[in-house]
């Protein structure tokens, strides 16, 4: 819905109302952006700058990339970033493949066994697996200290599956029937007709999966004894909220203050999300419109 101007019935808001709204919106936006800004500023400030300011900086007086060179020259954080990247890429690809396959099958009206299979999947939504039983399943599958333990237990998300299935159902069946009459097999139909039409939903669901994989930290704590395999979230928890000091692992912190290094780690854990987000965000709108039309 796009509105080009104030409708006549609304009347002109009084200056006081407009000012109040502007203030409210500015406060909301600043509450979100300001904390993130101090992270950027502190991570880029020189050690002296940070010390003089008492641990954080709002506007760096002299810039220094020392914190970034410090943590990217190898060591546990560099490795954790690589682990997280690999898990996110591989996990998202696997999750999308499995979700698309299952969602497409469940979206076809007369597929053999469709109804019971759908119930089988949807029941898990009502009773999600408990922490301890899931742990035993992962253990029995021999996934301890395996990167797969951060991927396989979260392969398909019921919500994502249901959204994807709904999107496939909204594709006009005439298109699919026409292709079938032309002799296309089910797989060709999925690849050449359904998937090209579903770019928006695949982008959004892909983002959801990627963000979930990138942000996952808890599972590595219970499934990994080998700390060198930790993803960035787990490492971040250890050093930022767990109270451990980075100095122990990073050696001499001559070029950057510990605060800058911590904030640089927060930055590096946030940056990929902030970079990908604007490209996928336009699809949210498309998705919401489709969803609203269907509802």
């Amino acid at each position: 819905m796009s509105r080009t101007g104030t409708p006549a019935w609304m009347g002109r808001p009084t200056p006081a109302v407009r000012a109040a709204k502007a203030v409210a919106l500015t406060v909301v936006v600043l509450l979100v952006i300001f904390p993130l800004w101090t992270v950027v500023a502190t991570s880029l400030a020189s050690p002296q700058n940070v010390i003089e300011n008492g641990g954080w900086v709002i506007w760096p007086e002299d810039f220094s990339f020392g914190a970034y060179t410090e943590i990217l020259q190898g060591g546990i954080i560099t490795r954790a970033l690589l682990v997280s990247t690999a898990i996110t890429v591989v996990g998202t690809a696997l999750s999308l493949t499995c979700t698309i396959g299952l969602a497409y099958t469940l979206s076809r009206p007369k597929v053999y066994g469709g109804k019971p299979l759908l119930l089988l999947v949807l029941f898990t939504f009502l009773f999600p697996p408990g922490m301890v039983p899931l742990f035993l399943v992962v253990q029995s599958a021999g996934l301890f200290d395996q990167y797969a333990a951060l991927i396989l237990p979260f392969l398909v998300n019921v919500f994502n599956l249901v959204v994807m299935r709904g999107f496939f159902q909204s594709i006009p069946s005439e298109l699919i029937d026409a292709a079938r009459i032309d002799g296309a097999g089910e797989f060709a139909i999925l690849r050449k007709i359904v998937l090209p039409l579903s770019k928006a939903v695949i982008a959004v669901i892909g983002l959801f999966y990627a963000v979930a994989y990138w942000n996952r930290f808890f599972e590595a704590i219970i499934y990994f004894n080998d700390q060198t395999k930790w993803p960035i979230g787990t490492v971040l928890r250890q050093y930022v909220t767990g109270g451990a000091s980075l100095a122990e692992t990073s050696g001499e912190l001559a070029t950057a203050s510990p605060q800058s290094v911590q904030m640089a780690v927060v930055m590096l854990a946030t940056l990929p999300i902030v970079c990908v987000y604007p490209f996928v965000q336009r699809y949210f709108v498309k998705g919401v419109v489709t969803g609203a039309l269907k509802a």
Binding site: L102, Y104, T105, G130, V132, V137, E186, L190
Partner: peptide, 28 residues
């Protein structure tokens, strides 16, 4: 429906193994 059923197998296997496996695991 074999093609459709085959592409559904990885997702179904996931739910059976991890979700129903964990559901059964509640006996502990």
């Amino acid at each position: 429906d074999r093609v459709l059923l085959i592409i559904a197998v990885p997702g179904l296997a996931y739910f059976l193994f991890f979700h129903y496996g964990a559901l059964f695991g509640n006996v502990l």
